[in-house]
Nucleic acid binder design. Structure first.
Lengths: 155, 155
DNA sequence: AAGTATAATGAGAACCAGTTTCAGCAACAA
DNA sequence: TTGTTGCTGAAACTGGTTCTCATTATACTT
């Protein structure tokens, strides 16, 4: 389990397209127009998005294609699906397109916001989890640390 | 966000029924036969369970009633619903029926195992999250810290 | 540039976990 | 017991997500 890319200037949309293109190619997927459009929408949002968010921002994208391409992007390590108890799944860029972070999940409206923790906290958590995992014969891939509660709007 | 009940002798099934009865009463719910049966099944499992797990262990329980009663138990603070990327939601006792813990989630077979971290890690995480939350105007209720990877069986 | 193979698209149908309905039943109070 | 209210269960429904398949785009070959 590695830390996300170091904090620094955010990636430009061109950087993102370059990285996505490489990752798709590595999995023998093509970087088509509609996949580029989808990546544009996710990048523009800057926060985890749901399917309705995406088709609202880009109505020319067919719902079935969006779902299929989110799946392709997930398999290629470009996006992560955030498990939520809400109605719609949320999607955002995976590391290292986005630096390592966690989520504030509103239990009332379902909104999800990204937050970052100090590096020393992350390191301690990683070490603790690695220890517990090895004791259980579990091979760790990534951790998720989410805070559930009420967002500023719903409180 | 408080630490779960202190580590110690596990609660007996009678203890559990007593606590559940009180919590249901507090919310004007009755502790019926089928709710007791459901609690028995969750207690016997000792791990987070899905709806198929429950009806397999207790086929006399109707699926609709199980879902309805899991909802009642969740509203009463007796069980937590664990959001997973898998097909079925997982349910387990909430704190303090179960001491504070986290999850090893297998990305291959969907199994979920409970693990505990050292208290100093928990405290640091709580403090970090509280700080980040207050900065965002977010009111925290609980945190979830899960490790995603491959379990011993799938690896 | 034309031809060919293969992958991607989109509209709609299908799927299925979870929820709702509603008529009958169980739990508690007087 | 009688009445009131909540609970149950079988089946129908809902809606987010996935699948189907005929058509179209992409990339490779000659």
């Amino acid at each position: 389990m590695t830390r996300g890319r170091a904090a620094g200037p955010p990636l430009t949309i061109s950087d993102i397209h370059a990285v996505v293109g490489i990752r798709l190619a590595r999995h023998d997927y093509r970087y088509t127009h509609s996949r580029r459009r989808l990546v544009d929408v996710i990048a523009a949002a800057g926060q985890p998005v749901t399917l309705p968010d995406i088709v609202e921002a880009a109505p020319e994208l067919a719902q079935s294609s969006v779902y299929r391409n989110l799946d392709v992007l997930e398999r290629s390590g470009v996006v992560d699906r955030i498990a939520s108890s809400g109605d719609h799944a949320h999607f955002e860029f995976a590391e290292p397109l986005l630096s390592h972070h966690h989520h504030l999940i509103c239990m009332d409206c379902g909104a999800i916001e990204d937050v970052q923790l100090d590096d020393d906290v992350e390191e301690l958590v990683d070490r603790s989890l690695a220890e517990v995992a090895s004791r259980a014969g579990f091979t760790p891939r990534r951790h998720s640390l989410d805070l559930h509660g009420s967002c500023a709007d719903c409180d």
